[in-house]
Design a protein around this nucleic acid. Structure first.
Length: 114
DNA sequence: ACTATGACTGGGT
DNA sequence: GACCCAGCCATAG
């Protein structure tokens, strides 16, 4: 189990992303206290245990596109899940200006105590 | 101890 | 917007 500590930080942040909103890989890394580790977020999500029920589909690239190639089974699943939460896609991309999660300091502090 | 490989990014064209 | 590309850094071999 490589870098379990970092993975745990990442999972906890991902778990906080509200339905109908998205966060970028880099954003999750920053919030997890792991700056410049966007790729690690991808690696962690790739190994994410199903039993954790993580909202992994709410993590997208900084461009608003999905990390999977358009049309792939994984991309379709991610897009479907987001669409079910009300997120609108145009050409396999979401508008970050509209859907990007912007956690408040209070929100983060509250999470820290739980 | 390398080398290769990404669910990545930001800057340049 | 698009496409490329160098930089990135933990993991896997």
């Amino acid at each position: 189990m490589p870098q379990a500590a970092s993975y745990e930080q990442i999972y906890q942040v991902v778990a906080l992303i509200p339905p109908g909103q998205v966060a970028t890989y880099g954003q999750v890394a920053d919030l997890a206290g792991l700056p410049r580790r966007a790729r690690l977020v991808g690696t962690a999500l790739r190994h994410c245990p199903a039993e954790r029920q993580l909202p992994w589909h709410r993590v997208v690239r900084a461009s608003g596109q999905l990390a999977f190639s358009p049309g792939s089974a994984q991309a379709i699943e991610q897009r479907t899940r987001l669409q079910q939460e009300g997120v609108i896609f145009s050409h396999w991309r979401v508008a970050l200006s509209r859907y990007q999660w912007q956690p408040s300091l209070a929100e983060m502090l509250h999470a820290l105590t739980h």
